[in-house]
Amino acid sequence: MAGDPRSLSREAFEARLRGLSVRYWDRHPFHVRLHAGACTPDEVRAWVANRWYYQRHMSQKNAAIVANCPLPEVRRRWVERILWQDGPERQDGNAGGEGGLEDWLVLAEAVGLDRRQVLDERHVLPGVRFAVDAYVAFCRTRPWKQGAAAALTELFAPDLMAGRVVAWRRHYDWIKPDGYAYFERRVPTVRAESGYTLDLVLTHCVSREEQDAAVAALAFKCDVLRAMLDAIDYANARP
Rank of each mutant, 00 (worst) to 15 (best):
Val118Cys: 03
Val136Asp: 03
Arg129Asn: 08
Ser59Gly: 07
Tyr182Asp: 01
Val136Met: 00
Pro88Arg: 14
Trp78Phe: 14
Leu101Gln: 09
Ile65Cys: 02
Leu160Asp: 11
Thr141Gly: 10
Cys69Tyr: 05
Val79Thr: 15
Ala134Phe: 05
Leu152Met: 13
Ile175Val: 04
Gly147His: 06
Ala167Phe: 02
Gln91Met: 13
Arg142Met: 12
Ala137Thr: 02
Arg116Tyr: 10
Arg51Leu: 04
Gly99Trp: 03
Leu113Lys: 00
Ala167Tyr: 03
Thr40Leu: 15
Asp103Cys: 00
Leu119Val: 01
Gly179Glu: 00
Leu155Arg: 04
Pro143Met: 03
Ala181Asn: 05
Trp104Phe: 04
Leu160Pro: 09
Glu109His: 00
Val165Arg: 02
Gly97Lys: 05
Ala181His: 07
Arg81His: 12
Cys139Ala: 08
Asp42Val: 13
Asn68Arg: 14
Glu102Phe: 05
Tyr172Pro: 01
Asp92Met: 07
Gln55Thr: 08
Ala162Glu: 14
Pro143Thr: 03
Ile82Lys: 03
Arg77Ile: 05
Lys145Gly: 11
Glu102Met: 05
Ala137Phe: 00
Pro72Ala: 09
Ala149Tyr: 06
Gly163Pro: 08
Arg140His: 05
Arg81Gly: 11
Ala134Asn: 10
Pro70Ser: 07
Glu73Gly: 10
Trp168Glu: 08
Val124Trp: 10
Arg115Lys: 06
Glu121Lys: 09
His57Glu: 03
Arg77Gly: 09
Val106Asp: 09
Lys176Thr: 02
Ala167Trp: 02
His171Thr: 06
Ala151Gly: 13
Arg45Cys: 07
Val124Pro: 12
Leu71Val: 14
Ile175Tyr: 00
Glu73Val: 09
Leu155Thr: 03
